[in-house]
Each structure stands twice: as C-alpha cells, then as structure tokens.
C-alpha cells in the first residue's frame, strides 16, 4: 500500500510539473499569437473571445504572473482548455473529447498487445538461447529502427489502392455516424487494421529483446538450477520460475517507456489521417493552434501517468516483495 501511495504522490507531482510547463510554454511564444489569429480571421472574432484568448496567453498585462497562474488553474479545474483556433470557436475540450476514444482504442490496445506478444516471444527466445531463434534477433533490430510513420507510408503504398480491402485513411467510412451499430463498428475495425499492424510490427521487437535478455540473465540463477534439479517439467521452470522473475524489470520498463511509445504511435495516426489525438496535434501544429496543442499535450501526459499507475498496480500484483514492506 505504501508503495502505491508513494507512486501516486509522484504522479501527482509529475502532473503538476507538466501543467506548470504547459502554463509557461505559450508565454514563450514570440510576438502576439492572438493578433495573428485576428488578422487571419478578419472580423470574424468577437471582442469577448479576443479578451479570453489574451488571458489564456498571458497577454493580459494587468495581472502579474502569479495571478495568471492561479487563473490558469481555475480555468483548468473547470475543464476549460480555451478555444481551438483550427475549429474556431469550438472549445478545445470538445475537440479532444471527440478524438480521445480513437487514440485510446488504437494506441492503447495495440501497445498492450505488443507488450504481451513481445514478452511472450521474448520468453521463448531467451529460454532457447543459442537455437535458430537467435538468428532472428538482427531482423527485429532492423524492424524496431524503422520510424513508425515510414512503415505506415509503405503499408499504405503496398496494401491500399483502388479495389483494395484496406482503406488508406480515416477512422471510418465517410457518411457513417459514429455509433455502436452494425455499420459503424465493422467499418472502424477495418480502418484500424493497417495502423494497428504498423504499430505492432515496429514496437514489438523492443519487448522481445529486453525480455530475451532478462530471461538469459535469470536462467543462470541458482534457483533455476534447483528447480531443474527437483525434476520439475521444463515448461514449469520456464514459465513459473524464470519468466515470472524476468517479467518484473520488463513491466517497470514498460511503464517508463510508455511516454516514448505513445509519442511514436501518434505519428502513425498522422500518416493514416486517423481521427485521433496525434492527427489533431498535427493539424494544430499546421494552424499554429496553441490552445489545442497544449490541451493535447496535457491529455497525453495525464493518460501516460494513469497508464503508469496501472503498470505499478500490475507490478504490485506480480511481485510479492513490494506488498510485504
């Protein structure tokens, strides 16, 4: 329990750091971003909206930085992330709310599958060290060195086209309304196969390698020799003795590298024009839509923190030692 409390405290601290960072980033923007927005949307922005944007960007010179910071927190706690420039005048929270399920569905599920599958394969490769499986390791290295987005480009070039089963972009067929029905769900699944496969291929090999190395390290421990000497079946020694212990560093590694993985997978959305957070971030960057960029960064960070907390719970369940102390 203590372990979990410590971790939660740390994640709260990290969330605070991220939010504070998010507060300062727009204040580094040179010039007056609101002015450039106004000149781009000549006459289409009301005076009220301009004033609220100035508050958001800290251009309101009547307040000192501390008051601005408190105001920012107040806005945030009300779920107010400002108005998006791209989809003006839609609030950022609405834009994010629309695209978050897509990202959670695609990136979340594929990341977990890739971890489980990679770990399972790594157990096999580590246990059978020195067999033909070792020959496959350089190939996995090569696959993991390919940028996700480039693999996505190749996948589009090879598998899509006129008459192909796979669509090349989007999250569902144009004309369908997002709903849980017999038309929308199959279409959404069909659109997610290629992006998911792209993420799987390039992210899995990292897990295979780290799990293999842990298995190799663990399988020369004395307790493994003892387990063999007791005459336990090979399967039991491999899974219950070696893999269970080798898994622990892999789970904590999973938690730590989530930030990197999520960053990479967001790019797959860009290539496939998949309507998730990554694609929104791409559009926001194109339009210099700072409120949307900040909002997306905040949501991604908080999701990663929650995922980290879940990974810690998993660690707690896997390692009895953390429960005792």
């Amino acid at each position: 329990m203590r372990f979990l409390l410590q971790r939660t405290a740390f994640y709260l601290f990290t969330a605070w750091a991220a939010i504070t960072l998010n507060f300062f980033i727009p204040r580094l923007v040179p010039g007056d971003p609101v002015q450039s927005l106004i000149s781009r949307n000549q006459g289409r922005i009301s005076a009220d909206a301009i004033e609220s944007l100035r508050v958001l960007f800290g251009l309101d010179s009547n307040e000192n930085i501390w008051e601005q910071y408190l105001d920012y927190w107040g806005q945030l706690l009300h779920g107010d992330l400002g108005l998006s420039f791209t989809f003006f005048p839609t609030p950022v929270s609405t834009v994010i709310g629309d695209s978050l399920p897509w990202t959670v569905g695609l990136v979340g599920i594929t990341t977990i599958i890739s971890f489980l599958l990679g770990t399972a394969l790594g157990v096999g490769a580590g246990w059978r060290r020195g067999s033909w499986v070792d020959g496959l390791l350089p190939a996995t290295t090569f696959l993991s060195s390919i940028p996700y987005f480039w693999l996505g480009l190749v996948a589009i070039a090879v598998f899509t086209g006129p008459g192909s089963f796979f669509p090349s972009s989007g999250g569902y067929e144009a004309g369908l309304v997002p709903a849980f029905d017999g038309y929308f769900i199959p279409s959404a699944i069909k659109h997610s196969v290629l992006p998911a496969a792209t993420i799987l291929v390039s992210s899995m090999s990292g897990w295979i390698l780290s799990m293999r190395n842990m298995m190799v390290t663990v399988s020369s421990e004395d307790y493994i020799t003892v387990a063999h000497a007791k005459g336990l079946s090979e399967r039991r020694v491999a899974l219950s003795y070696a893999a269970r212990n080798a898994l622990l560093p892999n789970v904590s590694g999973f938690a730590l590298s989530l930030g990197f993985i999520v960053g990479g997978t967001l790019l797959v959305e860009i290539v496939f024009s998949y309507p998730g957070l990554g694609y929104q971030l791409f559009q926001a960057v194109g339009y210099k839509d700072y409120p949307l960029m900040q909002g997306i960064f905040l949501i991604i960070t908080i999701s990663v923190l929650v995922a980290n907390l879940l990974a810690d719970v998993a660690y707690l369940l896997l390692d009895p030692r953390t429960r005792k102390s």
Binding site: Y11, F13, T14, A17, A18, L21, I25, L28, V29, P30, L256, L258, G259, F260, V262, G263, G264, L266, L281, V285, K288, M293, Q294, I296, F297, I300, T301, V304, L305, N308
Partner: peptide
C-alpha cells in the same frame, strides 16, 4: 518527471513555437 512526460509531443510543441 522528464522520463514520464511524453518527450515527442513536448518537443513538437516547443519547436513549433
């Protein structure tokens, strides 16, 4: 903290400024 915060989105945002 730096390890957990997703680096790439941060880099993208800072660079886009």
């Amino acid at each position: 903290v730096f390890l957990v915060i997703p680096a790439l989105p941060l880099i993208i945002i800072v660079t886009s400024i």
